[in-house]
Design a protein around this nucleic acid. Structure first.
Lengths: 113, 113
DNA sequence: CATAACCATAACCATTCGGTTATGGTTATG
DNA sequence: CATAACCATAACCGAATGGTTATGGTTATG
């Protein structure tokens, strides 16, 4: 059982709260799928104004779910899935993992090709 | 890959929203640990008023995270961890599972004893 | 039967939230 | 150098949120 713990994970509270909003989840999903993105690109994707996107990114940042990298006049954001650990841990404790164990294992093995 | 889908799971949105609040999470955790509980008991546990607890339970009910059973003048609530499936699925897609795949598999096998 | 216990709902309130437009700072471009 | 692009912050606003007290309905109890 390897315990990595590279960065101190944000409060579980922050993670749960950050992902409670659908727009924020959409942004995080987009970053996960498409990789690093400019605020401009994210604004085009999300159907809200640029300041709204900026504020959402701030919340995601607080939860450590995204990192940013300034490059000239644009800021590139990328997802930081490590930060989901508190949520995964929570689900380990209170979740339904004990059920479909076999299904999940099967599924896991399948995806490991 | 067995697909059970006994009850139509609530919107993932509802689940994420419901678990965003720490008091609500605490209630759910308590129900998971201690099993079925009266509203009265939960009120004693949570540090808020009885109506507050009732409202939280309503939100959890909407997310199908709890079930209730009336018995005389008291209502017993119990956790329904199945309802966490949407969140688990979401983590499967966007989560950090792809990383420590092996660690998690190892962990899973370990817990299967 | 009167009273108390349990719970849900109503009514209300302060705060937070998610959105907007306005603005300003920094960097690229014509 | 003037202008445009990119982004964050400020200021503001309506709606949602999480809490409270008040109330009323149902069930148990003295």
């Amino acid at each position: 059982m390897v315990m990595v713990m590279s960065v101190k994970s944000a409060n579980a509270n922050h993670v749960f709260r950050a992902l409670a909003d659908p727009t924020r989840r959409a942004i995080f999903e987009e970053l996960t799928r498409q990789g690093e993105q400019t605020v401009h690109a994210l604004t085009r994707y999300a159907r809200v104004s640029q300041p709204a996107v900026s504020k959402h990114l701030t919340v995601l940042k607080r939860a450590k779910l995204v990192r940013h990298r300034r490059e000239g006049r644009e800021t590139h954001y990328r997802a930081q899935p490590d930060a989901l650990t508190p949520m995964v841990d929570w689900l380990d404790r209170y979740g339904a993992f004990w059920r479909d164990r076999f299904d999940r294992l099967e599924d896991l093995l399948e995806r490991m090709d």
